[in-house]
Computed example of a mutant assay.
Amino acid sequence: MDSNLSWDNLGWDSLGDQRVMVVVLAVAAIVLTGERTTWHVLRNVVTIAHEGGHAVIALLMGRELAGIKLHSDTSGVTLSRGKPRGPGMIFTALAGYPAPSLLGVGLAALIGLDLITVLLWVVVALLAILLTQIRNAFGVLTVVLTGGAAVAVMVWGNERTALGFACAVTWLLLIGGLRAVIELQRSRRAQGSGRRGGPPVTSDADQLAWLSHVPGVLWVTVFFVLSLVCIVAGGWLMLSWNP
């Protein structure tokens, strides 16, 4: 695949065609994340980014990373050692839900800068680093398959395929990040808002409420607003670039 891959050499008839592709993929992401069966499969990618966010911030906060597990029900857990309370734990718990959306904005910026090949290498590199921390078989399989898809596009895909894959992954992270936040609040309503007097480990929002004494619903609101902002920003980056 051309190492200088950019909008200019994709053979589109017009810039409008490029923008149509971005919009079509956005609609596809909305439809696929809204359908239960496909979302159950695609959510694994969002979970990878979610747990990766926990892991990165845990390390930045000086905590010792003990491993990551990804489960077949699309849930995951990132284990770290350190003080059970305090800023380090708060920021670690906070990082998960914003991570897919923020990563999506970062990838959208690379698309806007005509750095499609760089984007694919970034995805592969991040997954390779994450793989070193995976501690269960399903997690290894999920990360390897996801990385393998990116490698396959780089090796066998043409320029349009690479761009379409990059935009599709970016929209999945952006739209899927919002869908995950909506699911979080639905789950909290179904299970209750957490136990009083002890650490409510049922969700990141409830854990944050226990750690910070800020109501869990406010944390969910923060996640929701941030996800919406990232969708707008990511979409703008992909649609407004004019090489």
Rank of each mutant, 00 (worst) to 15 (best):
N4A: 14
N4Q: 13
L5P: 07
W7L: 15
D13G: 09
D17A: 13
D17Y: 07
Q18K: 12
R19N: 10
V20S: 05
M21P: 02
M21A: 15
M21H: 05
V22K: 03
V22E: 03
A26H: 06
A28Q: 05
A29M: 02
A29P: 01
T33D: 05
G34K: 09
R36Y: 05
T37E: 12
T38Y: 04
W39L: 05
R43W: 02
V45K: 02
V45P: 04
V45L: 14
I48P: 06
I48E: 08
A49E: 04
E51I: 06
G52H: 03
G52K: 05
A55S: 14
V56S: 06
V56C: 07
L59V: 14
M61S: 13
M61L: 07
G62V: 11
R63M: 14
E64P: 00
L65E: 10
A66M: 13
A66D: 15
G67W: 00
I68G: 03
L70G: 09
S72H: 11
D73C: 10
T74P: 03
L79R: 13
R81K: 13
K83P: 11
K83L: 13
G86W: 07
G86R: 10
G86Q: 10
P87A: 11
M89G: 02
I90N: 03
T92R: 12
L94R: 03
G96A: 07
Y97H: 11
S101R: 01
S101L: 04
L102H: 04
L102W: 09
V105P: 10
V105E: 12
G106M: 05
G106D: 08
L107P: 00
A108K: 02
A109W: 15
L110R: 04
L110P: 00
D114N: 15
T117M: 14
V118G: 07
V123Q: 13
A125E: 01
L127V: 09
A128T: 14
I129W: 08
L130E: 14
L131P: 07
Q133N: 05
R135P: 06
A137V: 12
G139K: 03
T142I: 11
V144N: 04
V151T: 08
V151F: 14
A152P: 04
V153Y: 00
M154Y: 06
W156F: 15
G157T: 00
A162D: 07
A162I: 02
A162N: 08
L163Y: 15
F165E: 00
F165T: 00
C167S: 11
A168N: 01
V169S: 06
V169M: 15
W171C: 01
L173F: 12
L174V: 06
I175N: 04
L178G: 03
A180N: 13
Q185G: 02
R186S: 12
R186V: 04
R189V: 09
A190R: 12
Q191K: 13
S193W: 14
G194Q: 02
G197Y: 09
G198Y: 02
P200W: 04
V201R: 13
S203Y: 08
D204Y: 08
D204P: 06
Q207T: 12
L211F: 04
H213D: 14
H213F: 04
W219S: 08
W219Q: 09
T221L: 15
F223W: 12
F223T: 03
F223A: 05
L226C: 10
S227N: 15
I231E: 11
I231M: 15
S240A: 15
N242G: 03
